[in-house]
Simulated scan of single mutants.
Amino acid sequence: MTRTKNWRDITLAAAGIMQATTLVDQLARTGFTPSDAYRCSINSLFQLNPVDTLSVYGGSVDDMRLGLEALRDLLTSSRQLQNNTVRYSAGVLHLQRRLSKRRDMLGVIASRLEQASAQAEHFDTTHDNVIANIADIYSATLSQFRFRIQVAGDPNFLQQQRVASQVRALLLAAIRSATLWRQLGGSRLQIIMQRKKLLGETEALLRQIRP
């Protein structure tokens, strides 16, 4: 793997985290998510043996616009952004690091995602039954840690079972991207030390998106 491709992949995985957490924020506040971005994030959970990083997100950057734009906003800010998306992303990285030390829990997640994948073949990856199954995977594993991501938003939406399940499914998708990001060599220090490099890759990927 060349250095250029490596930075591109790290950027894609970082955008995957930002996309899923941006969708969590939108859901919590409005009860709505853009369908293409939502499907892209959820589908990433079912890419269990991807041939490359881009294939995790559907083989094209077209449905990654939301995450790439959120990442660009983070990288171009003159100060550390303080918003829900950044807070959720930081929480995801914290949870993912804890999860990486729990091989038993990783095994449970992998096994149950395989079952959910089979279920999705009969329904659809974003069908309510499949999303409820993914949400239960999150509740049975990551929710068991003492640290939990506190999602802020409109109680009228957050109290709806559909929205609550979608939020948990998206948080699991963010964890999946965080795992990939770390496997590729991603680190928080890069946001400071390699900001220009990451921003260049982000803008290059955005230019590839069809208008």
Score class of each variant (00 low, 15 high):
79 R>L: 04
75 L>H: 06
78 S>R: 12
80 Q>V: 15
96 Q>G: 12
130 V>E: 09
129 N>I: 11
129 N>Q: 14
122 H>S: 10
75 L>G: 11
140 A>N: 15
107 G>T: 02
97 R>C: 12
119 Q>P: 12
103 R>T: 08
89 S>Q: 11
129 N>D: 13
79 R>M: 11
73 D>T: 03
83 N>K: 05
121 E>K: 13
79 R>F: 02
92 V>W: 07
120 A>V: 00
128 D>G: 12
114 E>W: 13
108 V>Q: 08
93 L>F: 11
107 G>F: 11
90 A>T: 12
115 Q>W: 07
73 D>M: 09
99 L>P: 02
124 D>R: 04
93 L>N: 08
132 A>T: 00
105 M>L: 11
76 T>E: 07
126 T>A: 02
88 Y>I: 02
121 E>F: 13
109 I>N: 00
111 S>P: 13
114 E>D: 15
90 A>H: 11
111 S>L: 07
101 K>W: 15
145 F>N: 01
118 A>S: 12
121 E>S: 12
137 I>P: 05
80 Q>C: 14
78 S>E: 15
124 D>I: 04
87 R>D: 07
137 I>E: 10
106 L>A: 01
146 R>D: 05
102 R>W: 10
148 R>K: 07
146 R>N: 06
126 T>W: 05
141 T>Q: 04
76 T>Q: 05
79 R>G: 10
106 L>Q: 04
122 H>R: 10
94 H>E: 07
77 S>G: 10
89 S>C: 06
118 A>T: 10
141 T>V: 00
147 F>Q: 02
83 N>R: 08
74 L>N: 10
84 N>K: 11
115 Q>P: 14
125 T>A: 00
147 F>Y: 04
122 H>A: 15
139 S>M: 14
116 A>R: 05
88 Y>S: 02
108 V>G: 08
79 R>I: 06
78 S>N: 13
143 S>C: 12
100 S>E: 04
127 H>E: 07
112 R>Y: 01
130 V>P: 12
136 D>A: 06
97 R>P: 11
99 L>N: 01
120 A>D: 05
116 A>Q: 08
102 R>M: 14
96 Q>S: 13
123 F>S: 06
102 R>K: 09
129 N>A: 09
104 D>Y: 13
148 R>G: 09
139 S>I: 09
148 R>P: 09
86 V>Q: 03
75 L>Q: 07
86 V>R: 08
126 T>C: 02
144 Q>D: 03
123 F>Y: 08
140 A>D: 14
104 D>A: 04
142 L>W: 00
138 Y>T: 04
148 R>H: 01
95 L>K: 01
103 R>I: 11
128 D>L: 08
96 Q>I: 05
81 L>M: 09
117 S>V: 01
150 Q>Y: 13
111 S>W: 13
89 S>R: 13
86 V>D: 05
120 A>T: 02
87 R>Y: 14
120 A>C: 01
96 Q>A: 11
139 S>H: 14
85 T>H: 02
83 N>W: 03
85 T>W: 01
86 V>L: 02
129 N>F: 04
110 A>Q: 10
110 A>C: 07
112 R>V: 00
120 A>M: 03
124 D>H: 03
